[in-house]
Design a protein around this nucleic acid. Structure first.
Length: 835
RNA sequence: GCGGGUGUGGCGGAAUGGUAGACGCCGGGGACUUAAAAUCCCCUGAUCUUUGAUCGUGCGGGUUCGAGUCCCGCCACCCGCACCA
């Protein structure tokens, strides 16, 4: 007898080709079916697909295939977030062109994705480095420019003087360039900005409608946008100038005992002629920006000889330059109220400034001593002239009203959110479509000249931006005067590319970035799945971009993603030698409870289970696993056990278990018996219940639960004798696992004599009448503890259940003659006897 | 510091206030086999005086006939933000 096994090495590829040839997953926007746009965050083409991608795309794939089975027209596209620094780094290290490097990575990764059998519409594939894509992006940039959503101003950057390049904050390590090791300088450059702050209010309030986003992400965005309301007002200074400050606690204004300004504040800068001021400002600059440094940093100040006049009682308050005041928040200056702000308290303590109580628990506690720290909480206002006795809320409103009436201040809203700086002094990005004309300043490139393409002949031998250095590329003419002019050599932040790719997936006209009619058909994305690391920037930028498009009349969508799901990471145990060096999983072997290195038997320590990373060598390459077990076992593993939002620990034993289940199902499908007769009511009932439950689980993205239910039903079918019900159960399992293990499912479906594809099949129908049990198990408790169970017909009368319960021998033993005071009966569930 | 999350067997994890530990992994025992692989069957939270009982969902209280689930107070770990006025 030949072995009856499912062989993915020949089946997987065969069915992948069959789907391709049939165009099974090509989305038809003209279909009358309801539409579902399922999207996973597109990958950066770094070179290899990793397990995190596999998990992410498997989840989306199950949803996409499931929706299709449910009669939806599904758009499930894939593409490449192809601009970015790794390509430039590779160019410098390996002397390859960034485009070439990127293209070959895309080719390799696409082949990997194909091998996993994802139900993707490859006809819509693109890379953001395609001139067709970034040309449209340039057109959108110009539209936004003309709508006043783009502007240019000076802004500080991290400048590496050796590499002659701008560094991202993450590339600055201990004040030095990550590559060159050179001391990083602050430089001011003219840079382009998008007016995301103009949408701050809308981006914030819009979060309220995103019911199907994780609370966590909404909160993170809310905090990032950082709305705060307060009073902006000006102090008159002793030197004749005025000092605008911002406070969220105008109610505490009578507690102000000093003013503090940032080191970068113009007034502070104006005092730099005094060498001790200059020295102090320099000192402020040095302070670390890490969490630890800030935690322990002492509040430092420099007392100027300027004083500020209190707007109500007119007393002179000293003005300090202080290291804890930030220039880029509010006005860069604050009033110091030590009694009710912890930083001010520490500062006042150090410089022996008055600490007054102006908020107390009650009026009678107006003179209670301070507790050794600031009291930022609620209470009634005291020691504050006309505010005395008011609540904090009322006093805020009253002070704002008086400031506005007196013309020295106004109630304002301050946002933490900054405008989005999009200039990058790099080659591998979308060229900013602007020409700097000697007569007309910055002028957009005429749209008929788009795309402004990147030059191919570049060199990375010398430091600096290759676009800047290129002999001819930047030289052009002014679109207005025709005189010689220079192109903008900055490129766009890669987050711009990912801010609208989902729109391009949904519609791909040649002559426009997108087609509003097609957008209306597909948008918003129904399920967007990706990593939590994009909770703020990418998702906020995409929300902004979509709103900006709506604002300039491109279409009628505001929120791009109606439901968001952030999946957990794939983790793996770590292995290390005595010297602390890491070993990869295939370099080690388990002997009993201990681990050793295969090569020489050296003892190995198995360490924490952490995210797969090259540095810890705890990486498992999907290709090797697919080679060994086929795509379906890997897909099944990705869905099993861990809830999708939590981390998934990869293990060899786990994938072995999945592989066994693939074969177990194969045998089960093989046991379909066309000659079987008769009903098996309880199996049929379980099947119908499972059909409903698995569907609910998939729709809630509870893949681990769906998997568990399928195991359970499989076990039940294996034990059952041949019957029509058993065949129905087998067929149902086959259909239900098809989104998860599509290759196995197709193979078995064909073997059962079908000539169509199960990918085109419908989700199994359930019979509502079969969901109801006719017998139920009743738990019998005595004093809240389980004593016995009994089987009763569903809907049995309470009295009958009570009688049955009391008749139980175990219950009687537990009662031991005690008087029954009360009996609680929950119909069809339990009886609890209270004594 | 602020905000959020998590805590259940050896492990991943199930559980509308109603039989805690479904399902999977690991482990143990057995069947089949010359043998191995594969497969199948049984056991698998702890303790005890083991036909049974007691304890058990991070810790301490509370509400309830009944709490993993609800309330109050702690602890630990993880994540995000951070001198934001």
């Amino acid at each position: 007898m030949t072995e009856n096994r499912f062989d993915p090495s020949q089946a997987d590829g065969r069915w992948q080709r069959a789907w391709d040839q049939a165009g099974t997953f090509t989305a038809d926007s003209n279909s009358p079916k309801p539409k579902s746009y399922i999207l996973e965050m597109f990958p950066y083409p770094s070179g290899r697909i990793h397990m995190g991608h596999v998990r992410n795309y498997t989840m989306g794939d199950v949803l996409a295939r499931y929706k299709k089975m449910r009669g939806h027209e599904v758009l499930h596209p894939m593409g490449w977030d192809a601009f970015g620094m790794p390509a430039e780094n590779a160019a410098m290290e390996k002397m390859v062109h960034p485009g070439e490097w990127t293209r070959s990575n895309i080719e390799a990764m696409k082949a990997q994705l194909k091998r996993i059998g994802f139900a993707l519409d490859w006809t819509r594939e693109f890379a953001t480095c395609d001139p067709e894509y970034y040309g449209h992006e340039q057109a959108l940039f110009i539209d936004m420019y003309e709508a006043g959503l783009v502007y240019r101003r000076q802004s500080e950057v991290n400048w590496d003087p050796v590499d002659m390049t701008v560094l991202a904050n993450e590339q600055v390590i201990d004040g030095k360039g990550w590559r060159s090791g050179a001391e990083v300088e602050k430089r001011k450059l003219d840079q382009w900005f998008l007016r995301i702050t103009e949408f701050a209010e809308d981006l914030l309030s819009g979060l309220g409608d995103l019911k199907d986003w994780p609370d966590k992400v909404r909160l993170m965005q809310e905090n990032w946008i950082g709305k705060s309301q307060g009073l902006e007002f000006s102090f008159e200074l002793s030197n004749g100038e005025t000092l605008p400050v911002y406070t969220t606690r105008p109610d505490t204004i009578f507690g102000a005992s000093f003013c503090a300004i940032a080191a970068d504040h113009p007034i502070a800068q104006g005092l730099k002629d005094d060498p001790s001021v200059a020295a102090f400002i320099e000192e402020c600059r040095k302070g670390g920006t890490t969490a630890a440094a800030l935690d322990t940093a002492e509040k430092l100040g420099f007392r100027t000889n300027i004083t500020a006049r209190h707007p109500f009682h007119g007393q002179a308050l000293p003005v300090f330059i202080a290291n804890f005041v930030l220039m880029d928040y509010g006005t860069g200056a604050v009033m110091g109220v030590p009694g009710h702000d912890q930083r001010d308290f520490e500062f006042a303590t150090k410089y022996e400034l008055p600490i007054a109580r102006v908020v107390a628990r009650s009026v009678s506690e107006a003179n209670a001593p301070m507790a050794g720290e600031a009291e930022p909480g609620d209470g009634v206002i005291v020691n504050s002239d006309f505010l005395d006795g008011m609540s904090v809320e009322d006093a805020k409103a009253d002070v704002i009203a008086k400031a506005e009436a007196g013309g020295w201040g106004e109630g304002t809203t301050v946002w933490r959110l900054r405008d989005w700086g999009i200039s990058r002094q790099r080659y591998w990005g979308t060229p900013i479509p602007i020409i700097h004309s000697p007569d007309h300043g910055p002028v957009p490139v005429p749209k008929d000249q788009l795309p402004v393409e990147l030059p191919e002949d570049i060199d990375f031998e010398t430091p600096g931006n290759p676009l800047e250095r290129h002999p001819t590329w930047k030289h052009t003419t002014c679109p207005i005067s025709g005189k010689p002019a220079l192109r903008e050599t900055d490129t766009l932040d890669t987050f711009v590319n990912s801010s609208w790719y989902f729109l391009r997936f949904a519609s791909q006209p040649v002559d426009a970035p997108f087609d509003p009619e097609e957008i209306a058909k597909w948008m918003p994305v129904q399920h967007y799945i990706g990593g939590i690391e994009h909770a703020i920037l990418h998702l906020l930028y995409a929300r902004f971009w979509t709103r900006a498009m709506e604002r300039i009349g491109k279409f009628d969508v505001k929120e791009p993603f109606s439901a968001l799901f952030t999946q957990g990471m794939v983790t793996h145990e770590t292995y290390s030698l005595g010297d602390g060096s890491w070993l990869s999983p295939d370099e080690v072997r388990k002997n009993g409870a201990d681990w050793t290195r295969i090569e020489d038997g050296a003892p190995v320590t198995a360490g924490r289970i952490v995210k797969m990373s090259k540095s810890k060598k705890n990486v498992v390459d999907p290709d090797n696993i697919i080679e060994k077990y086929g795509a379906d076992a890997v897909r099944w593993f990705m869905l099993s056990d861990s809830p999708p939002e939590r981390d998934l620990p990869w293990s060899e034993a786990g994938i072995e278990g999945c592989w066994r289940f693939v074969q177990r199902l194969w045998r089960l499908f093989d046991s379909y018996d066309t000659s079987a007769e008769g009903e098996d009511k309880s199996l049929a009932r379980k099947t119908h219940q499972t059909i409903v439950a698995v569907a609910e689980d998939i729709e809630a993205l509870g893949f681990n639960k769906a998997v568990a239910r399928l195991y359970e039903l499989t076990g039940a079918v294996e034990k059952a004798k041949p019957s029509v019900s058993r065949n129905f159960a087998i067929s149902s399992i086959l259909h239900m696992v098809s989104p998860m293990m599509p290759h196995l499912a197709e193979e078995a479906y064909a073997k059962l004599g079908n000539s169509d594809l199960i990918a085109d099949a419908a989700w199994p129908e359930h019979d509502p009448a079969m969901l109801v049990e006719d017998e139920v198990t009743i738990a019998i408790q005595h004093k809240g503890k389980l004593r016995d169970t009994l089987t009763a017909p569903k809907g049995a009368a309470n009295e009958d259940l009570e009688a049955l319960a009391l008749a139980s021998e175990k219950v009687q033993r537990s009662l031991d003659g005690a008087e029954v005071r009360k009996v609680i009966v929950v119909p069809d569930r339990l009886v609890n006897i209270v004594t």
